[in-house]
């Protein structure tokens, strides 16, 4: 009975930790690969953070476009981040997560603009917001939302 109790108390969380580590890093690598592919497919598509357009552009129509994504850390990385937060310093496990979420949101915005036939996106803004935990003790699901939005332009061609 002691072995079973030990297994339940320490073995199961350890197993989940390992599973989360392998699955989580696999998912992350795959996501980064996809992001790079999609970014190179959009190479040359003008996305600007400012409003001005070149004088040679004759703007036909415009609309507001957005792209968003909600992501969360895997269990392993949350544990590491928790340990790290207690001593301070750089929390490396969070950096790739936020990076890939932001790039994903930008890609979704750009792909939707391109898909609807728009030629450029100007005045792009990025926003990050944290979703509240569903339970007060911090064990509930928490996520971070990345939002990218901007004004998509259709150019008149002669």
């Amino acid at each position: 009975m002691l072995e079973l109790e030990l297994f339940l108390n320490f073995g199961v969380p350890l197993l989940i930790l390992l599973l989360a580590y392998f699955l989580g890093s696999y998912i992350e690598r795959r996501h980064f690969r996809k992001i790079r592919e999609r970014e190179s497919a959009l190479h040359g598509y003008p996305i600007m953070t400012f409003e001005d357009t070149p004088d040679t552009w004759r703007v036909g129509s415009s609309t507001l476009v957005s792209g968003s994504v909600v992501v969360s850390l895997d269990y392993f990385k949350r544990v590491i981040a928790g340990l790290r937060a207690s001593v301070g310093g750089r929390i490396k496990t969070y950096e790739p997560l936020l990076d890939r979420a932001r790039r994903e949101a930008l890609l979704r915005m750009a792909e939707s603009a391109k898909g609807s036939g728009y030629d450029a996106v100007v005045n792009v803004r990025l926003e990050t917001s944290r979703l509240a935990n569903s339970r007060g003790n911090g064990n509930g699901t928490a996520g971070v939302e990345m939002l990218a939005f901007g004004t998509a332009l259709k150019l008149d061609r002669k």
């Binding site: 989360a20 699955l23 998912i27 992350e28 968003s68 909600v70 895997d74 996520g143 939302e145």
Partner: peptide, 15 residues
């Protein structure tokens, strides 16, 4: 989302 929280990544329902 709670299940997805174990392995991380996008929470599609929330998006």
């Amino acid at each position: 989302a709670g299940l997805k929280n174990v392995v991380g990544g996008e929470l599609k329902g929330y998006t």
